[in-house]
């Protein structure tokens, strides 16, 4: 039932937290955190998921590597149903997650030990760990920090360490669940360029969950989620030309895009969406 190059498939997925472990800010009522979710992510795709705080984004992320199992519907990761416990570790190995708070996902007391943590869990032989740790740390630019204690890293460096920890496990897909929310602009740019690079070079599927619009303007595809439902999907151009939906979901247009949107309303070459500064300059100077 799965198409060959689909990496993740959601089939009519709903999820409801039990009142007992109703996490983040839910009232303890049995509300559905997400409902009726249908979508697919292709192998090697770079997908952005946008939504306001509490829209269900994190729940969606956790459904992708079997940290949560759907209340109804099915999630397939590379053809494996997350419901099937025998696939659990295979799924988690192939879908790595980077979370929001840099401090709460580093386990070990030195940088290299933390990268090793995932490998130890997988039972990777020791001789193989050394090169894998080396590679992963140099991809994220932390090779010279190997013996440092995580406490002395900046927030951005901690998130890069978290990425290295996942990379060492050789995932097919990385889900970033608001991983840039607590970083300064420099740290954020660095993370985004690293994952973009991983997507281009290593063909790793990237699912970027965020509410920073400038991070997603060159994604392959975007989804807007609100009140637990996907309310819009499409290319960044398609998404950001629909200002009403974007703003209605508690989001905003990227600044340059907003400028051109307003001009568009004046009747100046409507129907075109300008997402980046470069595109804006080209639009105005007529270089096409």
């Amino acid at each position: 039932m799965m198409e060959a190059n689909n990496f993740i498939e959601f089939h009519n997925v709903s999820f409801r937290y039990d009142s007992a472990d109703s996490g983040d800010g839910e009232d303890g009522e049995n509300v559905f955190a997400v409902s009726g979710i249908d979508f697919t992510v292709k192998q090697g795709e770079f997908v952005g998921i946008l939504g306001r705080n509490g829209s269900g984004k994190s729940t969606l992320a956790k459904l992708m590597n079997a940290l949560l199992i759907p209340t109804s519907g099915d999630v397939y990761v590379n053809g494996m149903n997350t419901r099937d416990a025998s696939w659990l570790w295979e799924i988690r190995k192939s879908v790595g997650m980077i979370f929001q708070n840099p401090d709460n996902q580093i386990v070990a007391s030195t940088v290299e030990d933390d990268v090793a943590f995932g490998l130890e869990n997988l039972g990777v032989p020791r001789e193989e760990m050394e090169p894998r740790i080396n590679d992963a740390l140099s991809v994220v630019g932390l090779a010279d920090r190997r013996l440092k204690e995580p406490h002395y890293l900046s927030g951005g460096q901690k998130q890069r360490l978290a990425i290295a920890g996942i990379l060492a496990m050789r995932p097919s897909c990385i889900v970033l669940d608001e991983s840039t929310a607590m970083l300064d602009p420099k740290g954020r740019d660095r993370i985004i360029s690293i994952v973009r690079e991983l997507n281009l070079r290593e063909k790793i599927t990237i699912i970027l969950i965020t509410h920073h619009m400038d991070e997603v303007v060159d994604c392959d595809r975007l989804f807007i989620i609100d009140k637990g439902r996907i309310i819009k999907s499409g290319t960044p151009g398609e998404i950001f030309s629909d200002e009403e939906t974007v703003v209605g979901a508690g989001l905003e247009l990227p600044p340059v895009c907003e400028l051109f949107q307003r001009l568009g309303l004046l009747g100046l070459r409507p129907g075109e969406t300008v997402l980046t500064k470069e595109a804006g300059v080209e639009f105005l100077t007529g270089v096409r």
Binding site: P255, V256, L284, T285
Partner: peptide
């Protein structure tokens, strides 16, 4: 600088 500032700087440079 703000994105808009950056955008107009780029525009000015190009044109």
């Amino acid at each position: 600088v703000p994105d808009v500032t950056d955008f107009f700087r780029l525009l000015s440079e190009r044109t």
